[in-house]
């Protein structure tokens, strides 16, 4: 933990040396994601509901998934650069230090500019909170935290895959960046098979969809059992355990580079 903070701080200091580029990157990170949100607004100029959800409700889904992802991405997203580290040989040097290579990877090149994305998601979430009834608000922090864990676990799985597959970053991106885009909309707009897949295989539905059905008092279009609305922490822990095991298996299989 303190090693993480120390390494991350080192990177923040290093990038803050170039002040203008630092500020520009925060703003552009904010702006790119803001455009993304504007796109949803444009859709609602033509329809009143999307997959059975009103604009503020969709913003709630967008905001929760966005906040979870932005936190996971900022803290741990750098582990997706594993294959670069393997090729450059820098992963070897992480393995000879008395700190977990996972922590070193996550903190390496820590990008404080990603705060821009987080700020944007927080604003959208803030604006949407009017749709959350007080009696059900308790589930919101829990779903965001579960979302952070689920996205981190997906990042980790993607990294673990890179121990065996060099092209894995592309595959992993489909689930991380693809995952956040997917969960920013009501899953009811997608086909049933896809929704089943992200419920039971890669449990992205637990990032926000399932708990949001309870919070927004919406029926599950697939008619899945009621208790799944509260199963996000369970799904998060299960996926975290699987990804940790995959990571360890990956390290055992690590081949290093020549010489």
């Amino acid at each position: 933990m303190d090693s993480y903070l120390l390494l991350a701080w080192t990177w923040v200091r290093a990038s803050a040396q170039y002040r203008t580029s630092f500020v520009v990157s925060i703003i552009s990170s904010f702006a790119i994601n803001a455009l993304d949100a504007v796109a949803i607004g444009i859709v609602f100029l033509h329809v009143t509901t999307l997959g059975g959800f009103t604009l503020p409700e969709v913003m709630f889904l967008y905001g929760t998934s966005g906040v979870s992802f932005a936190i996971a991405d900022m803290l741990f997203g750098n582990i997706e650069r594993l294959s670069q580290h393997i090729r450059a040989g820098t992963f070897d040097t992480m393995l000879i230090r008395p700190v977990s290579p996972f922590v070193q990877m996550a903190a390496d090149g820590f990008g404080a500019h990603r705060i821009g994305r987080l700020a944007q998601a927080v604003i959208v979430l803030g604006l949407s909170l009017q749709v959350v009834p007080w009696s059900r608000a308790w589930l919101v922090p829990l779903m965001i935290l579960s979302g952070v864990v689920i996205f981190t676990a997906v990042f980790t799985l993607g990294a673990a895959l890179q121990f065996v597959l060099v092209d894995a970053p592309e595959i992993a991106n489909a689930f991380t960046y693809g995952g956040v885009t997917l969960t920013q909309y009501p899953l009811s707009v997608y086909g049933d098979q896809l929704v089943r897949g992200v419920t039971f295989i890669i449990p992205l539905a637990f990032v926000n969809w399932q708990p949001a059905l309870y919070i927004l008092d919406q029926p599950d279009p697939l008619g899945l059992p009621e208790w799944l609305r509260f199963a996000s922490p369970l799904a998060a822990v299960a996926l975290a355990v699987i990804s940790a095991l995959a990571w360890r298996a990956g390290i055992r299989r690590y081949r290093s580079t020549g010489s």
Binding site: D2, S3, L6, L7, T10, A14, A88, G89, T90, D92, T93, I96, R97, P98, V99, S259
Partner: peptide, 28 residues
């Protein structure tokens, strides 16, 4: 143990040498 690779550095490329040592001190 201490490990040195002739072909690559274990230090932080962009940091002054002294700061690299300070990081090593914390990590160890």
């Amino acid at each position: 143990i201490g490990v040195v690779f002739g072909q690559r550095t274990t230090l932080w490329w962009d940091l002054p040498l002294r700061d690299s040592f300070e990081l090593v001190r914390h990590l160890y």
